[in-house]
């Protein structure tokens, strides 16, 4: 275990390179996921407040159907 951490004296370099990569992955994921949740909320709020005729018109579009039915942003 100690050998794994020390890596023959290169532990600080190796672990910091891997940590930097994973922190960046996490950071990017969080930023984009926040944007997605925000836009999804805005869309659903607008969609549900549409007048009935406009709602039916908007619901005819296949992409709108997917967006209204999905809640993916919060789940992944």
């Amino acid at each position: 275990m100690i050998n794994l951490l020390l890596m023959n004296g290169y532990g600080l370099f190796v672990w910091s390179a891997f940590a930097f990569t994973l922190i960046n992955f996490f950071g990017l994921y969080v930023i984009i996921n926040r944007q997605l949740i925000k836009e999804n909320k805005k869309f659903k709020l607008k969609f549900n407040n549409l007048e009935k005729i406009k709602y039916i018109q908007a619901y005819k579009q296949s992409t709108n159907q997917v967006l209204v039915s999905s809640n993916a942003a919060q789940k992944i």
Binding site: I32, E39, K42, F47, L67, A72
Partner: peptide, 16 residues
């Protein structure tokens, strides 16, 4: 995820 963000932005404008 980013593609979804961009598409939803366009759809939001479409609803307006």
């Amino acid at each position: 995820m980013k593609y979804n963000v961009e598409l939803i932005k366009i759809k939001n404008k479409g609803l307006d």
